[in-house]
């Protein structure tokens, strides 16, 4: 692996969220891309951070239904009994 200044890795850490969200300014974005291309560890961090976020996005898409019994109790608590069977 090419030896490089690891203080750079730390200084880029603060911009990582914006980088993976695609909301980072062009200049900083290019700086990170250049750094990641030559720093294997940072490359892994960026890839696994992206994967982490996408796994949670996917898990949210699958869940999100209220169990039938929970919905019924909710409707009764709110005095919405007439609308339980919609």
């Amino acid at each position: 692996m090419i030896e490089h200044e690891h203080s750079k890795c730390r200084s880029l850490l603060g911009s990582l969220s914006d980088f993976v969200d695609g909301t980072l300014g062009e200049e900083l974005c290019e700086a990170i891309e250049r750094h990641v291309a030559e720093c294997q560890n940072c490359h892994v961090v960026v890839d696994t951070l992206r994967k982490t976020i996408s796994l949670y996005h996917e898990s949210a898409a699958e869940a999100g239904e209220v169990p039938v019994a929970v919905r019924e109790r909710l409707f009764r608590t709110l005095n919405l009994d007439d609308y339980i069977r919609h």
């Binding site: 949210a60 869940a63 999100g64 239904e65 209220v66 929970v70 919905r71 909710l74 409707f75 709110l78 919405l80 007439d82 609308y83 919609h86």
Partner: peptide, 18 residues
């Protein structure tokens, strides 16, 4: 409007519960 409130509950209860 109770019916509208029940629609509100059905629309948002999934995400709120999650």
């Amino acid at each position: 409007d109770r019916e509208e409130f029940s629609r509100l509950v059905d629309t948002y209860s999934g995400p709120i519960y999650r």
